[in-house]
């Protein structure tokens, strides 16, 4: 397993490397934008087409979820949660097409987690004022260092959780592929033909079953957890 490949470097500020992750993110952004434009083109007040019904169903589901978890007061966060969920789930599921999943790179998930961190702090300051925000760290005075550490640990734990799950799936899948290739070349030694020996027959079928867990289930679950934690943290910061 290697890190994401560097395609080229932008020669400003000492060179910004453009990696496979960034290019894949651009592809996903273009895909999501195209789907959004396609679903919302030619909307009517009374929906007649199937396209608008799908779009309305998705948006209603999102708003219901946000309202259920965060309450009516925070309904303005729904577009951000929806965007986060969409890019997270597509970024993990893109491994099904053979792309490198963008969430198997710590930079991606750490970026999202830092956005959540800033949102939590800003929401806290908005609700309690700067004085109240500083005071919330010293609730029992003895615990001040621990409170600060636990606040900083939140984005780290969120980003490591998402990154670790997807990256572990990638590592295990590549280990299985290597093992199956050597198993099939070992079994096919009985056939006296170099061409037939080089066909990894065992790689067909079995990895698909593992892919259901490591790609489909983990992707859905991690996207859901990340959005849930974001909503819960932001909502409890404003209490």
């Amino acid at each position: 397993m290697n890190g994401p490949q560097i395609y080229f470097t932008i020669p400003v500020l000492g060179g910004i490397p453009i990696t496979e992750t960034i290019v894949n993110t651009w592809i996903l952004i273009a895909f999501i934008t195209t789907v959004c434009i396609f679903l919302t083109r030619g909307m009517k007040i009374i929906p007649t087409g199937r396209r608008q019904q799908i779009a309305e169903k998705l948006v209603t589901m999102l708003y219901n979820l946000v309202e259920e978890v965060m309450g009516k007061k925070y309904i303005k966060f729904a577009p951000y949660i929806g965007a986060l969920f969409t890019i997270s789930i597509l970024g993990s599921l893109s491994s099904l097409t053979g792309m490198r999943p963008i969430t198997a790179d710590l930079s991606t998930t750490l970026g999202w987690a830092l956005v959540t961190f800033v949102m939590v702090q800003v929401n806290n300051i908005r609700a309690h004022g700067v004085g109240g925000w500083l005071k919330s760290f010293t609730q029992p005075v003895v615990m001040t260092p621990l409170n600060i550490i636990s606040e900083i640990a939140n984005p780290i734990s969120m980003s490591f959780r998402h990154f670790g799950n997807i990256a572990a799936g990638m590592v295990i899948t590549s280990l299985i592929y290597t093992a199956l290739a050597s198993l099939s070349s070992f079994v096919l030694q009985i056939v006296p033909s170099v061409f037939i020996q080089s066909i990894p027959i065992f790689q067909a079928g079995l990895p698909a079953i593992l892919s259901i867990y490591f790609d489909l289930f983990t992707s859905f679950l991690q996207a859901y957890i990340f959005c849930m934690l974001t909503m819960v943290f932001v909502q409890s910061a404003g209490e």
Partner: peptide
């Protein structure tokens, strides 16, 4: 349950990150 399981998983994920 899924939410709780995923949160409980984070200690294991820390170990995994160290190993990786």
């Amino acid at each position: 349950m899924l939410f709780g399981c995923a949160v409980a998983e984070s200690t294991g994920i820390y170990g995994l990150v160290v190993a990786l």
